[in-house]
């Protein structure tokens, strides 16, 4: 095969292989949608964490359960907007608490997703233990 015919075949083959390998990592449109749902859950957990910290600052201890409180916010995202499953909350210490959700791609979540929290991969929870 001459160069004019061989080069495009090689380029095409490399590109197709790279795209196929890339798709095995990214997972296609369904996985991408699951990531978007996880991002929405993370946004909700940030709101709930901010609420719990506010309550802890005002009252001196983390709330025992998540219930709207005037000074810290009344419009709380208490359930997962895609599945309607409630987010799980648990007070740990005086000001420490745990916030959990059913993440679909937990492997992509890190400590950096919610400031000041520790990601517990196995439980799907963020632990807030820093004062």
């Amino acid at each position: 095969m001459e160069r004019d015919a061989l080069a495009p075949v090689i380029i095409g083959a490399v590109v197709v292989l790279a795209i196929a390998a890339g798709l095995t990592i990214t997972g296609g449109p369904t996985s991408a949608r699951a990531e978007k749902r996880d991002l929405a859950r993370l946004a909700d957990l940030r709101v709930l964490a901010s609420f719990a910290r506010c309550v802890a600052d005002i009252t001196g201890s983390a709330p025992t359960k998540l219930a709207p409180m005037g000074d810290c916010g009344t419009d709380l995202p208490l359930t997962d907007r895609t599945t309607d499953a409630p987010y799980r909350y648990e007070a740990l210490t005086a000001k420490g608490f745990l916030l959990c959700a059913d993440f679909e791609r937990p492997g992509l979540i890190t400590n950096f997703d919610i400031a000041g929290a520790v990601w517990q991969h196995d439980q799907g929870c963020f632990a807030f233990t820093q004062p």
Partner: peptide, 21 residues
């Protein structure tokens, strides 16, 4: 670990290759 940002840039590259290659 760059996580989601790496996936995002991978998707951009796949999209660009599907159009331009």
């Amino acid at each position: 670990y760059s996580g989601r940002s790496a996936l995002s840039s991978t998707r951009w590259s796949i999209a660009a290759l599907i159009v331009f290659a």
